[in-house]
Amino acid sequence: MKKVVMSVILAGSLFAMPTAFDAALGDQTLREGTRHADVSELQDALRDTGHFSVSHSSGFFGNVTRQAVRDFQRSAGISVDGIAGPQTFRALGVSGSSSSSNTAQVSSSSNSTISFNTVLRPGARGDQVRQLQIALNERGFSGGTSGVYGPKTQQSVRDFQRSAGISVDGIAGPQTYGAINGTSASSSSSNTSSSSNTATTVSNSSGNTEGIISTARSVIGSSYQWGGTTPSGFDCSGFINYAFNNNGKSIPRTVAGMYSAATKVSNPQRGDIVFFETRTGPSHAGIYLGNGQFIHSGASTGVTVSDMSNPYWSSTYMGAGRL
């Protein structure tokens, strides 16, 4: 009788364990006690952002994972509760991908092809990164499927580039996409018609903006340092210069200089600069990410993502400009 009771209790505890199947990271809320492959992906993503220090992804959401989620949430400027839900996944750049919408850019053939939309580099996040990872996995270059372009994905890209006999830089651009798809990297730009040239220009512009944002996100957590211009320490304008300069765009060094040089816009778009009057005149700035968020180097936070609806930032907001 005792054995029967224990069996029932054990079975009940297994059914009660928070777990789900056939889901992609972002399709379900993950919290302490969950054991699932999605937790491994979450741990991979948190490791790539520097918030999960354990070398092995266990797939179990314990105290260490909960603290890593809390640390990430705090650095991203979102609600800190230690639970990986929609807000946390958005901050990670991850969205559920179990629906058929994923086939919009990656085919479901034995070897996926991938459409070139923007240059992807370390720090990038989102569905495009996940699609790149899937394509690399299918070709034997495991980069995970976290949707976060961290060191593991960068190494996978480098290994693939080396095997394909193309430039090895760990950045996924037109040449890498061409090699993945088995086409020439220059085939999409060989046409000399004006429409083709226009499309290339738009793509390059978009890639530049996303590259700037990816570079900016890659140094989240860097400390604040007056006059700093490197990941070892940034002031607010030094951080913006770092993100722009690393993507081939030279801008004024100071916030005041940026404000004077920028074309003012009433509704900021991704990559625009948002300015704040924390002292007299434009004295603080960040890079707008969309959805009311911006990334900046704050004196008390270092490089972090903040919400423009925060009372402090909304009260000191001066406007936005495009450089």
Rank of each mutant, 00 (worst) to 15 (best):
A68R: 07
T201V: 09
T113W: 11
G271N: 09
S186C: 05
A45K: 00
S250E: 03
N117R: 12
I287R: 00
F89H: 14
Q155Y: 02
L132R: 01
R31G: 01
I212V: 15
L136P: 09
D307S: 11
T209N: 05
S115C: 10
N191M: 06
T34R: 07
S156C: 15
D71L: 14
I171F: 09
K2S: 05
F239K: 00
M1C: 08
R35A: 14
A243K: 03
R158G: 02
A124C: 12
N204W: 01
G173T: 09
S237L: 05
S188T: 02
L14S: 03
S300D: 10
G271L: 00
T280L: 14
A164Y: 05
A285G: 06
A23F: 06
S315G: 08
F294P: 00
R158C: 02
G126R: 14
T153C: 03
N204K: 04
M6I: 11
T19C: 06
G298S: 15
N102G: 15
N310K: 12
V129E: 08
V119M: 15
D71A: 13
Y177F: 12
F61Y: 09
S189I: 04
S98V: 15
C236M: 04
G173A: 15
H296C: 14
G147H: 11
V303G: 12
I213D: 00
I9E: 09
G178F: 03
L120F: 10
M17C: 06
G93Q: 08
V54Q: 12
T103M: 04
G281Y: 12
A243P: 10
T316L: 12
